[in-house]
Computed example of a mutant assay.
Amino acid sequence: MTIRASLARFADMFAYPLRHSHYVELVNPLWTTHALMARVVEVRAETADSCSLTLRPGTGWRSHRPGQFVRLGVVIGGQRHTRTYSISSAPDREDGCITVTVKAVPGGRVSERLVRQVRIGEYLPLGEPQGDFVLPESMPVHPLFITGGSGITPVMSMLRNYVHEYEVVPDTVHMHYAPRECDVIFGSELDTMASAQRYYQLFRYYTQDGGAHFSAEQVEAACPDWREREVWVCGPSNLLEAVEAHWKKSGLEHKLHVERFHAPIAKGSNSAIPGRVLFAKSATEAPSDGVNNLLRIAEDIGLNPKHGCRMGICHGCDTKLLSGCVRDLRNGTLIAEPGDTVQVCVCSAVGDVELAL
């Protein structure tokens, strides 16, 4: 590795101001070392509005833990946009690939592009696996999984890993919510697993076909020993709020492991103040309603700020406040000191604001 690194540094001298990896990218994007890329090798429809992308990661990829997510990028209108998606495959597949399952969000730039337009052979920017919504490695558990919609994707990685590593799913209860039967992602695979795996119990609930939303009665009926189990829950915000409230009421919130696809937003108030946002480095400004986050405002006028998770976790979108005031949408905290750090994905403007973007 030392000789290889030395040769790479020597080659970089002749590639300045770029790196030799930029020229290697012209031959095969998967060989680059300055950026991690993945090639789409399969696109498989899961439901009418979701699909699984099988990706072959390039040089530098490291294996993930079941339940983790990655940043996935696409180019739209000449600009790169990035979102985070859970890996739905088990680690260390024999073919070296991973799968990412995407549900199209109405009006979503990236999700619509990935579900409707991505093609086999396309290269996509890929991030390293991240996240702590994972099963413990040091001790066995008897999990209760509660999932809704596309929230099943990280749990599917866990279930597939059980089968891949041990051929047996341990004592597991899985409660899954979807609008209708046709909306269940991985529906046939889940049914097969429930039939083949003696200790895996699957319960489906259809919220738009006469089924009820999450309730204490459902938990008691599906999993009488829920108080003794560790719980992994992922899905839409209303499901997460209901589960968290139930476990908190029981004094068992310490047993919950929660994965969110969107930042928890504080309850709305009447204090939203419209104004204008000035992006100083871009010499551009845009109107603000005091409600939408600053990242969305920037993207709507054609800017493409650095960002990652879009929910206030990775700090990839951090910038400096030059003047004015912003509100953290997660808790209502006001940030008004010039020079303070602003996470534009979870902050809205309060009146006129100037940012170092």
Rank of each mutant, 00 (worst) to 15 (best):
E189N: 09
E189F: 05
E189Y: 07
T192F: 04
S195Y: 08
S195K: 05
A196G: 12
A196E: 15
R198P: 07
Y199N: 10
Y199F: 11
Y200E: 05
Y200Q: 09
Q201E: 06
L202K: 05
F203N: 04
Q208P: 06
Q208E: 14
Q208L: 10
D209V: 11
G210H: 02
H213T: 12
F214H: 10
F214Q: 03
F214P: 02
S215V: 08
Q218V: 04
V219G: 01
A221I: 02
C223R: 02
D225F: 08
W226H: 08
R229I: 11
V231C: 03
W232I: 00
W232A: 01
V233L: 05
C234M: 06
C234F: 01
C234N: 02
S237W: 05
N238W: 14
L239D: 04
L240Y: 04
E241D: 15
A242V: 03
V243K: 04
A245Q: 13
A245D: 03
A245R: 14
H246Y: 15
S250V: 07
G251N: 09
L252V: 04
H257R: 15
V258Q: 06
V258N: 09
R260C: 09
F261D: 00
S269E: 04
S271V: 12
A272C: 10
A272L: 01
P274E: 11
G275W: 01
R276Y: 07
L278S: 12
F279P: 00
A280K: 08
K281I: 10
T284P: 01
A286W: 09
A286S: 11
S288G: 06
D289I: 04
